[in-house]
């Protein structure tokens, strides 16, 4: 099937029968792709549909593809009986803060590494690159002990700071800054501009695209982060959405509609962010994978 990819670009004039065959074949492939795409999103559809059914309809046989009766009580239940609103606020605040700080710290550090010729620069860049390979998950215990010694367990600071230590954005920015023509910066410097002015007046505006892309990807990653918030937060009220909703799921009784209502509520921000900024997300993903 893969061979048909570039049939349209082949220059050989095909015979009429093969044209019809290949059109048919193309149609089949298109249909197959669309069916697969629909199957891929179906579980999400199913979650949404389940969340608006009454409890007894969720477990009825045969299952109903479209609710016979719409029942939004699961949503009102979770909003009234869980701190989900609080978790939302926690997630928004921490994810925004992490995104802002990651971008700011990375931009500054990458600019120094890329544009300023100072003693120890190569050495510092190697140090940053080395961290590229280090999995923070392997040192959860010392990280927890350290955060605890600082008195930051169960605090938003303790939740945020370890997420600022990943060097990936520094490396990406350095690559982008490296590609900016030297003349631009040098001209400004000759005019007496400080390095800060050069960075924020020239380099940052020139790399606005990657900043937006990285910002969105960082935001989604921070929003979705599970392991560290799960470990560092004790208080249910201080949890972020992805960790918090696992607390509702442990509820007893028939709770499928409530569980799905929770899942849908938790998924809304990142899904909306993706649907609006699809192209930016794609760009950001490419950058983080090392493909520009």
């Amino acid at each position: 099937m893969t061979a048909t990819i570039n049939k349209s670009t082949t220059t050989k004039p095909p015979a009429p029968l093969s044209v019809r065959l290949s059109r048919l074949w193309g149609g089949v492939i298109t249909a197959l792709t669309l069916v697969l795409a629909a199957a891929w999103v179906f579980p999400m559809y199913w979650a949404v549909v389940t969340s608006v059914k009454p409890d007894d309809e969720t477990v009825a046989a045969p299952p109903t593809l479209w609710p016979q009766k719409f029942d939004f009580s699961s949503y009102s239940y979770i909003f009234q009986n869980s701190p989900i609103v609080r978790w939302y606020i926690n997630s928004v605040l921490t994810a925004v803060l992490i995104t802002f700080l990651v971008l700011l710290l990375s931009i500054l550090c990458a600019y120094a590494l890329s544009q300023i010729n100072f003693r120890g620069r190569t050495w510092l860049y190697w140090l940053v690159l080395a961290g590229f390979m280090i999995p923070f998950q392997a040192s959860l215990i010392p990280l927890f002990i350290f955060i605890n010694k600082l008195g930051l367990v169960n605090s938003y600071t303790g939740l945020v700071v370890p997420q600022l230590a990943a060097p990936i954005a520094v490396v990406i920015y350095k690559q982008f800054f490296d590609q900016v023509p030297h003349e631009l910066g040098d001209a400004a410097r000759i005019d007496g501009a400080s390095e800060w002015r050069v960075l924020f007046g020239i380099f940052l505006p020139l790399n606005w695209g990657i900043t937006v892309s990285l910002g969105i990807v960082t935001f989604i990653a921070a929003w979705n982060n599970f392991l560290w918030p799960f470990i560092v937060m004790n208080d249910t009220a201080k949890l972020t959405i992805p960790v918090g909703i696992t607390q509702i799921q442990s509820a007893y009784g028939v709770a499928y509609a409530k569980t799905m209502a929770t899942a849908v509520t938790a998924a809304v921000p990142t899904v909306v962010a993706y649907l609006i900024f699809q192209r930016r997300v794609t760009e950001g993903v490419m950058a983080t994978a090392g493909l520009k």
């Binding site: 795409a37 629909a38 891929w40 999103v41 579980p43 999400m44 199913w46 979650a47 989604i220 929003w223 979705n224 599970f226 959405i241 992805p242 960790v243 909703i245 696992t246 799921q249 569980t259 799905m260 929770t262 899942a263 938790a266 998924a267 990142t270 899904v271 962010a273 993706y274 649907l275 699809q278 997300v281 794609t282």
Partner: peptide
């Protein structure tokens, strides 16, 4: 978008849906 969409979901949403 259809194939990429699950990627932006928090892991706990993915697990509870499945």
């Amino acid at each position: 978008a259809a194939f990429f969409l699950p990627n932006v979901l928090p892991v706990s949403v993915v697990t509870s849906v499945w």
